[in-house]
Design a protein around this nucleic acid. Structure first.
Lengths: 230, 230
DNA sequence: CGTTTCAATATTGTATGCAGCTTCGAATTC
DNA sequence: GAATTCGAAGCTGCATACAATATTGAAACG
């Protein structure tokens, strides 16, 4: 009765996570037979899942050579951040004119409830999940599912770098978690007062602040990915 | 030596075109065996192509029920137009600060060269191709390949409706082609003078003008899709 | 009549096999 | 030694087969 999720879906989810985490190294060739054994499925459903990930930009594909992990370069990451600016700023703009007072209040409330965890969290993974969750909720306020869909895709591909960025900020701040909750508040405040320009520009600078560190984060990413342990 | 394109690629291209044109009716279930015969390939490569199109939002998928054409509703089309606004406005913004004078001049030149064709074209299909081409070139000026990629995807899914929109404008104008070349000029002018706000707002209103007609265009789309002939 | 049941039919999900292309490395040449 | 050739091994591309699931429609029931 509970055959809700197919094999392809399961394989897809696993692969998406692996690709997001760069369990495949940048540009690494993926061996289908080996991978299908690891995932406990034959090559047919595996290749279907791989094709989805190619279409989503997590992997690339070359004829007669198979599937490869996406590359990891500063300019690629900058592009993703810029695309996030495009999507999230427009989502913010739409939320300003479209979201109900109740929905905005709910988001503000979410932020308040999260604050303790936000402040006390030491695990960057956890912190990032909360941050992504906030941005996803905000995108929901736009009422536009395409923007939500695109944002979700961008977030998946940029996640690894953002995680590194958070770790870096934490280490710099001497172990204190760098949850940028005040920037989030500022954005929600702008939406709540229907001050579109304020909200959008707060969102823009919030994202661009991170974008500027992309090059450095990519450098760190490479040193992590290609160093034997830890 | 010329085995550059695989079977999957060929099938994918054919299906993308079919899906874009609503050769599959909205929400229609797709029969794999029948389709694989039409396309001259077995179900294995067919399903790989179908999975790509699901990931790109051209089709949907349900477990154990297979593939379906994407739905066609006013709100879905509005979402696509809004996403276009997000992407193209940010691309315009980036182009303003980033594109070289030469590249901008080349785009202006392209517009000039196109003008005669633009004015004389009677075929909406042709007109739309030129319009898409202009927007794609502009997106190139942003130097951001993610934005280009997203735009290309959105354009594919919205194409059918834009075509109807153009036909409608033409019929209203008594057969004269409604190429909105002056709006394009205005955008390029803004970029050339590095007047970001002017360029972006020209782009925004250019796209939103069309968005407002989405509901009506969808209505017409349905009547076209479900009427026996013509 | 409208509903329900259930077996026949159709369709999808996945494993497997093999042809053809790519890769790798040892032997060969310069 | 470095470059090249070429055959063996490995991998991908695709067709096919069959199991699992969904759909259909006719018969039975209310």
């Amino acid at each position: 009765m509970a055959k809700r999720e197919s094999n392809v879906d399961r394989v897809y989810e696993a692969l998406r996570r692996m690709a997001a985490d760069f369990a495949f190294k940048p540009d690494q060739r993926i061996n289908e037979s080996a991978l299908s054994e690891v995932l406990g499925a034959s090559r047919t459903p595996l290749r279907e899942a791989l094709n989805r990930l190619v279409a989503e930009g997590f992997l690339t594909f070359q004829n007669n050579r198979g599937f490869f992990c996406r590359p990891l370069t500063p300019s690629y990451i900058m592009d993703l951040y810029e695309a996030r600016v495009a999507v999230e700023c427009e989502a913010t703009r739409l939320a300003c004119t479209r979201a109900s007072d109740e929905d905005i209040a709910a988001l503000a409330d979410y932020l308040n409830r999260m604050e303790p965890e936000y402040e006390s969290a030491t695990d960057p993974e956890e912190l990032l999940s909360m941050d992504e969750s906030f941005h996803a909720r905000l995108a929901q306020l736009s009422g536009n599912s395409e923007l939500q869909r695109i944002l979700n895709n961008l977030n998946g591909r940029i996640r690894y770098i953002r995680l590194i960025d958070l770790k870096r900020l934490r280490d710099r701040a001497g172990g204190k978690a760098p949850g940028d909750i005040s920037a989030h508040r500022q954005i929600v405040e702008g939406i709540a007062t229907r001050n579109t320009e304020a909200a959008v520009s707060a969102m823009r600078s919030h994202i661009e602040k991170r974008r500027e560190e992309a090059t450095e984060a990519v450098r760190i990413a490479f040193s992590q990915l290609y160093v034997p342990d830890e």
